[in-house]
Computed example of a mutant assay.
Amino acid sequence: MPVEVQVLAYAAVLQYLQFVLMAVPLNIQLGTDYTGGPRDEPKEVKGVPGRLKRAMDNHFEGLILFTIAVVVVVLGDAGGSLTAKAAWTYLGARILYVPAYASGIPMLRSAIWFVGFAATFVMLMAALL
């Protein structure tokens, strides 16, 4: 299995873990009657549970671009040392992003997000050039 595909699988596992990490405090905050119901009236999720939800949602967005990069690299037979390092960098950034976002430290999550975003771009450019 190409390294980039392996890292993509780990990124998917991270998405599952983020869901579990977010779901427990969110259910405590909103109550299971609400989260198990139709949710006709939206409720604001505040504090750490809200930040964990936004971090999870952000990973869904980033995972789309990363998946595209992996597909382009693998189908284009463009994998190599650079794309493997960029894939691991993406995953490392996404792992660090969760506690950075949950902690609420200003600008830290944005800087970490950018590292993952740039790593994805490097993979795409390596495949295209």
Rank of each mutant, 00 (worst) to 15 (best):
M123T: 08
M125L: 13
N27F: 04
M56A: 14
T35M: 13
Y90S: 01
K43V: 11
V70E: 03
Y97K: 00
A11V: 11
P38N: 11
T120N: 03
T67W: 03
L128C: 10
V45D: 03
T32Q: 15
Y16R: 09
V71M: 09
A87R: 07
A78Q: 06
G92E: 14
G92L: 09
P49K: 06
V73H: 06
Q15V: 03
Q18S: 13
A127S: 04
V7I: 11
K53F: 09
P2C: 02
E41M: 07
H59S: 14
G47W: 09
P25Y: 00
Y101W: 07
W113V: 02
L52Y: 05
N58E: 10
I105W: 00
M123P: 08
A78F: 06
V7L: 03
Y101P: 05
N58D: 14
F117I: 00
S81F: 08
V3R: 01
A23L: 09
L75A: 10
E44T: 14
G79V: 05
V20G: 09
V3W: 02
G104K: 06
F117C: 10
Y34A: 06
A86F: 06
A102K: 01
A119L: 01
K53Q: 14
L30T: 13
V115P: 15
A127L: 00
V3C: 05
K85A: 15
F121C: 11
W88D: 05
A78V: 03
Y34S: 04
G80M: 07
I95C: 04
F60C: 02
L128A: 15
V70G: 02
G50V: 01
K46E: 11
I95V: 15
A127N: 04
T89Q: 12
L63T: 04
V3A: 12
P42W: 07
A111C: 12
S103P: 00
M125I: 14
T120C: 03
V20I: 15
